[in-house]
Write a protein that binds this DNA or RNA. Sequence first.
DNA 1: ATCCCGAGGG
DNA 2: CCCTCTGGAT
Length: 227
Amino acid sequence: MKRCLDEAYPNAECELDFSTPLELLVAVILSAQCTDKRVNQTTPALFAKYRTAADYAGADRTELEEYIRPTGFYRNKATSLMGLGAALVERHDGEVPNTLDQLVKLPGVGRKTANVVLGEAFGLPGITVDTHFGRLVRRWGWTAEEDPVKVEHAVGELFPRKDWTMLSQRVIWHGRRICHARKPACGACPLARDCPAFGAGPTEFDEAAALVKGDEREHLLALVSNR
DNA sequence: ATCCCGAGGG
DNA sequence: CCCTCTGGAT
C-alpha cells in the first residue's frame, strides 16, 4: 500500500511496503541512524506482534526493546513508540493524523518524519527536507538557506509541483549514495556535467555552488526528475 | 576510526 | 547551540 523509497532507484534495500500509515510511521522512526536493510529485517516480526496504537501504548518495554534492538537507539525508540501509541489513542482515536501540526506533536516525530508520512502515507505533495536534501539544493544553488523550513519554502517557491514527495526521495537518495557531505563521488554522478560545484576542490565545492546562475536550476531539476 | 535519511533534552 | 542515544557498514 505505501512505499518509503522511490522505486525509480531499484535496490532491494530500498523496497519498503506497508499496510497502514502506522506501519510506515513506525518504520520511519526506526530508520534513524539505521540502514533500510536492517529496518526491513526488523519490521515483519514487530508488525506481527504490534498491530495497533494501543499495542504500542501497552507494550512491555523490555520486550519491545528486544524487537527493535538491531536498529540502534533502541531505548529512545522504545520510549518514542510507547509514547506515540499512547498519544494516538488519546488524541486521535488510535489513528495516525494527517496534518503537519498534529504529527509533529507526537512523541518521536519531528518535521522530517512528519513530512515523509504526509507524502507517502497520505499522498500530500510536500517537500521532505533532510540533511541531504538541504546540502544538495544548496550545492545546486537553489537556495542558501540553512534552516530546513526555509529551504522547504524557498525550493517550493522556485519549483512548485505536485510530485515533490517522490522527487524529494530521489534527491535524498542521491545525497546518500553519491553527493556526500565530505567527499562527493562526482565520478559516479550523472549530474556532474551540469553541477555548478563540479570541478572545484573539496573545500571549495560548496562555495562554487553558491555562484550558480539562475537558468541552471531548471536544468538540474530536469535531470533529477528524469532519472 | 568514522560516519549515518533524527529527535529530545540540557 | 550543544550533547546524547545505538548498532552496523565501510
